[in-house]
């Protein structure tokens, strides 16, 4: 009486399974192309980052911080990186950075154009907005599922789910940014008879850039968070260090890997924010 009748069953899983099977067979070419494309980007970037000497990397971050923030931040960030090296996590960090950077670049390349389409097409916006909302409320590890379906375990599903996870904020903010350009400015732009493309390139995107840069910053932070979660499907790097420490209940290793992730997060967050702020207030700076 109080329990759900056991005979009343319906399983959707088997149908999904069949669809996925069908897709993997008939779209094999497509998935193969995605896979080799992602791998190509990833391998080259990782080769580069591990080829760069550690001290050179730290120097570059130090100089960037001095240029865009302050010497104090430069010293802080370099000591963070130095500590990571002493923890013995340098390679894992470079691996994580590779995934984050390649996912962010790909996310931006997909997300900004989609955001622009959203801004210029009301129908597309009303269609896609609930989807984006839903995507942002889902727990991040759910994004691993479609990746596993099509690519199994490893790097590629990790990067793919990172991209999908980090896509909503950049799309949303690009859309908002372009719609938020003051009407009079858009009218002024239009009144000179530009093509849609000219208006976009010369007026709308430059005017929206400050907000879009906020989106880039958010995307970066989300990508970093996701890369850690992606260790669950076997992505190496700092995330995996944390995961294996958890499995072994190794507090020492877990702490070191965890704090390294925090260090990287702080450096990426502050540095991307500072760089985008600086490019926006170029006018004011030139006056001083």
């Amino acid at each position: 009486m109080y329990e759900f009748p056991a005979k009343l069953t319906f399983h959707i899983g088997s149908y999904i399974d069949r669809i996925v099977d069908w897709l993997t067979v008939h779209w094999a070419g497509f998935f193969g192309a995605v896979k080799s494309g992602l791998l190509w980007v990833f391998v080259h970037l990782n080769d580069f980052l591990t080829w760069v000497p550690w001290w050179y990397f730290i120097l570059v971050i130090f100089l960037l911080a001095c240029q865009f923030k302050s010497i104090g931040s430069g010293i802080l960030y370099s000591s963070f990186l130095f500590l990571i090296g002493m923890f013995g996590l340098w390679e894992a960090t470079m691996y994580t950075l590779t995934i984050v950077i390649s996912s962010v670049v790909i996310t931006i390349m997909i997300g900004i154009p989609l955001g622009i389409i959203m801004a210029s097409n009301n129908r597309f916006e009303t269609f896609i907005k609930p989807l984006l909302d839903a995507m942002q409320t889902m727990p991040s590890f759910v994004y691993l599922i479609p990746g596993i379906f099509f690519f199994g375990l490893g790097l590629v599903p990790g990067v793919l789910s990172t991209i999908i996870y980090a896509l909503p904020p950049i799309m949303r903010l690009t859309n908002l940014a372009i719609r938020g350009v003051p009407e009079e400015v858009v009218e002024a732009g239009l009144s000179f008879g530009p093509s849609k493309w000219q208006l976009l390139i010369k007026v709308q995107i430059p005017q929206a850039l400050p907000t879009i840069m906020t989106g880039v910053n958010q995307t970066t932070m989300m990508a970093l968070a996701m890369v850690v979660v992606a260790s669950m499907v076997g992505v190496e790097g700092l995330g995996l260090e944390v995961l294996s420490a958890l499995n072994r209940i190794d507090v020492a290793q877990g702490f070191e890997a965890g704090i390294s992730i925090v260090f990287i997060a702080i450096i990426m967050d502050r540095l991307t924010l500072a760089i985008s702020n600086r490019t926006q207030s170029r006018a004011r700076k030139e006056r001083n």
Partner: peptide, 8 residues
């Protein structure tokens, strides 16, 4: 334009 509509 009233509020100038300049590109900042």
């Amino acid at each position: 334009f009233q509020h100038f509509g300049l590109f900042n």
